[in-house]
């Protein structure tokens, strides 16, 4: 390769060769070079008149260039493709949905309404409608399960650990102390302490009339709280 490169650079360019190139390679390159130089070309018969006629001819033929046929063909293809898409497009996309509303979460309504005279049956698809409400049967519906994501409310007592016997005994003693002032409180205002019908203990409002005053003083007392009187 290196030898032939050197031959290229010198023989083909008409420069003297450096020593070391084989005579055979040199002879081949020189012979090919000479043959290329002696390549003949037949005489050109083209005249100015031909050019003039060609220019006039092409300028008169210019509207019928094949490029415009190409554009026409591509435009026709696009039109055919668009019409095919319009035919193949499902009508549900065009017509307004009957059941449910588009965009409403959990509701998918699909209806295909045939045109007049067509024998295509009406197709409806509904999703997420309550199953029990759709059927009017005598069988009682299964109880609906709450969604798991909903927060489960449970009483505080469940969260506490079970009490052992010693703890229960320890709690009974303060409870007995608590009962005594409560009984003591019944004396000045018995009616106010009585719970209202339908109300729970936690919502009780105990109205205590302090002795020695003309008007009562309302005190909100929670469940289990002691009501004590001073004096």
């Amino acid at each position: 390769m290196k030898e032939f490169r050197e031959i290229n650079d010198h023989v083909f360019e008409g420069e003297p060769l450096s020593p070391g190139i084989s005579p055979r390679e040199t002879r081949h390159a020189e012979a090919i070079r000479a043959a290329l130089r002696s390549v003949k070309t037949p005489e050109c018969r083209l005249q100015v008149e031909h050019l003039r006629n060609a220019v006039l001819d092409t300028s008169s033929r210019r509207p019928a260039r094949p490029v415009k046929w190409g554009w026409l063909g591509s435009g026709l293809g696009i039109a055919v493709a668009a019409s095919m898409l319009a035919v193949l497009q499902p009508k549900a996309d065009v017509e307004a949905p009957v059941l449910g509303q588009a965009g409403q979460p959990g509701i998918v309504a699909l209806q295909t309404e045939p045109a007049e005279g067509q024998a295509v049956p009406k197709v409806k698809a509904e999703v997420s409608e309550p199953p029990a409400a759709a059927k009017a049967t005598n069988v009682a519906p299964e109880p609906m399960r709450r969604p798991r994501s909903r927060i489960r409310v449970r009483p505080k007592s469940e969260s506490k650990p079970p009490l052992n016997e010693a703890t229960l005994l320890a709690r009974q003693e303060p409870q007995a102390k608590r009962d005594a002032p409560a009984q003591k409180a019944e004396t000045p205002a018995e009616a106010a302490v009585a719970p209202a019908a339908g109300s729970t203990a936690s919502e009780q409002v105990v109205v205590v009339v302090q002795p020695g005053t003309d008007h009562g003083k309302a005190i909100e007392v929670g469940l289990g709280q002691d009501v004590l009187f001073g004096g």
Partner: peptide
């Protein structure tokens, strides 16, 4: 090819 060459030469100038 001579004929084609002349045609192409003419086309080049046009």
């Amino acid at each position: 090819k001579q004929d084609d060459s002349e045609d192409l030469t003419q086309e080049v100038f046009v």
